[in-house]
Nucleic acid binder design. Structure first.
Length: 480
RNA sequence: CGAGGUGUGGCUCAGUUUGGUAGAGCGCUUGGUUUGGGACCAAGAUGCCGCAGGUUCGAAUCCUGUCACCUCGACCA
């Protein structure tokens, strides 16, 4: 594809410096501001509006699959966090502790939640008594804190916003089904609402969540060839239930442990949107979550009739999409660049020439195509064009992922060379030994992203690292 | 957290080597002319030089600490 002309000089080109491009976009599009606390971000109105739209869309999907929202405490007593061994080992290095209440030292220190499994378990132990109490399908929207060593807006912040679903089931089968169901909810959301193609798969033991029996993931590929885990779903078995003494009387009148899941998606997904769809002119937002879907820009707005017409279109479109009009006295060129930077999917230009011809000019953000639309057809064309933008964005992201996904069938030297020369997803066979994962990380700088559900034909019968018999195909890559 | 780099009006930076009256462009405000890809003219406002200590008659400049951002590692959603 021909390279798009760069119209926004303030944004560093992504080919020159991808990390700087990311920072520029986040700041120029007014998504976040830095705060006085290390690693904590201020999400500004435009950025928060994106998050609200994500919440709205996802929350409906959770409700549609039978879940209820709750609110859990912010603090976790140390003794509660300690109850599940793997879990505490996984999170202990990055929790923040509260040791003082006012001027009094606390007898037991409280951790600021890094995730709420323990809180949900503590509650479930008190409210689950019978199989009639199951399943419990809870979700909460909240922020959590992890004491990260290096941070970047959206991608890794010390405090981040997310939802965490926590469910309890009568049987393992039901819980596993739930784990998969929610992974599919995330995958559908990414593809249908965010226009981000994802690969569904399972994490290796090395990469799975602390305390989980199985972790499922959706992995997306960013513009620079790095992977971003965009949502996860965990199956816990009855490990936490045993640790927290959660029991219920079953249908056969025996005491049993319920089976548990948890699943989450965070503000990090906004980073995925930026790095999947963005270009050198700034953000490109998927219509489903764009705070403004259509921006009306009057041309020669001082001329009689132009603003009246623009207002008329604004009123007309208000019923069918999120639309705004910019009648400030900035030049049209300035407005074009501004709303491209902010990723508004459609720009609608209306000027004297258009009014004369009963038309307007609509410009797509994703490919900059200019489309002349009759004003009589506006209300049917705009929803179609929004859908076209979504489809175009999805296809473009999918094509790029395809061109950056490749197989390595040889041995260690081949994958080391591939990892250093071709960014992207590397498909290669693996024997299942964690030592091979460690070696690949050390020597090739890549980690296993997932074992994709879609295994199709085996790529090779030999592990790419050690040459022993391969058990599965793994997608490897560098990750955020 | 380790190695390296950068912090000067809102933004991009000059000035730091060799201590001596804080600068430019863009942006902002006001007025006017403009308006189909970041318009033009005129007049104005804006700074404890990231922050805290120290050295000095005197610090943007030298020293110490600290915070933030960028790059590469390690850790991680």
């Amino acid at each position: 594809m021909a390279k798009q002309k760069k119209l926004v000089e303030e944004i560093t080109s992504m080919d020159v410096d991808f990390a700087q491009w990311y920072t520029d976009v986040v700041k120029k599009a007014e998504l976040v501001d830095y705060s006085g606390v290390r690693g904590c971000m201020v999400i500004r109105p435009y950025g928060y509006a994106i998050w609200e739209n994500i919440q709205k869309n996802l929350d409906q999907r959770f409700k549609d699959t039978g879940h209820e929202n709750v609110a859990m405490p912010l603090f976790i007593p140390e003794s509660l966090l300690q109850k599940e061994k793997d879990h505490v080992e996984g999170f202990a290095p990055e929790v923040a502790w509260v040791t003082m209440g006012g001027s009094e030292e606390l007898t037991e220190r409280l951790c600021v939640r890094p995730t709420s499994e323990t809180l949900f378990c503590d509650h479930y132990a008190r409210v689950i008594h019978s199989y009639r109490d199951l399943p419990k399908l809870y979700n909460q929207w909240c922020s959590v804190v992890r004491w990260e060593k290096s941070t970047r807006p959206f991608l890794r912040t010390m405090e981040f916003w997310w939802q965490e679903g926590h469910t309890m089931h009568e049987t393992a089968e039901e819980a596993i089904e739930e784990t998969e169901r929610m992974l599919n909810v995330y995958a559908d959301f990414c593809e249908q609402a965010l226009a981000i193609p994802v690969i569904k798969g399972q994490k290796t033991d090395k990469e799975k969540f602390a305390g989980a029996e199985a972790t499922y993931t959706i992995e997306a590929l960013m513009h620079d060839g790095k992977a971003l885990q965009s949502g996860t779903s965990h199956y816990f078995g009855d490990g936490f239930a045993k640790a927290f003494d959660i029991t219920f009387t079953g249908r056969d009148n025996t005491l049993q442990y319920p089976h548990q899941t948890s699943w989450g998606m965070s503000t990090r997904i906004i980073g995925a949107i930026i790095m999947t769809h963005g270009d050198d002119s700034g953000l490109v937002l998927p219509p489903a979550i764009a705070p403004i879907q259509v921006m009306i820009i009057p041309i020669a707005q001082h001329k009689p009739g132009v603003l009246d017409k623009a207002n008329e279109l604004l009123l007309k479109l208000k019923n069918i999409c999120r639309v705004k009009m910019d009648d400030s006295d900035q030049s049209p060129g300035w407005k074009f660049a501004e709303y491209e930077m902010k990723g508004v999917p459609l720009r609608l230009e209306i000027g004297p020439k258009d009014i004369e011809n009963n038309q307007c000019v609509v410009v797509r953000r994703d490919n900059r195509e200019k489309i002349v639309v009759s004003l009589d057809e506006l209300e049917t064309r705009i929803p179609q064009l929004l859908q076209d933008v979504h489809d175009g964005m999805y296809q473009k992201a999918l094509d790029r992922r395809k061109s950056m996904t490749y197989e390595v069938t040889g041995g260690l030297d081949d994958i080391i060379k591939a990892a250093s020369t071709r960014p992207g997803f590397i498909k290669a066979a693996w024997c299942g030994d964690v030592k091979c994962e460690e070696q690949l990380k050390e020597q090739a700088g890549i980690t296993s992203r997932c074992m994709p559900f879609d295994q199709k034909e085996p790529i090779s019968d030999k592990c790419v690292c050690c040459g022993k018999e391969a058990k599965t195909t793994v997608i490897w890559g560098k990750a955020y």
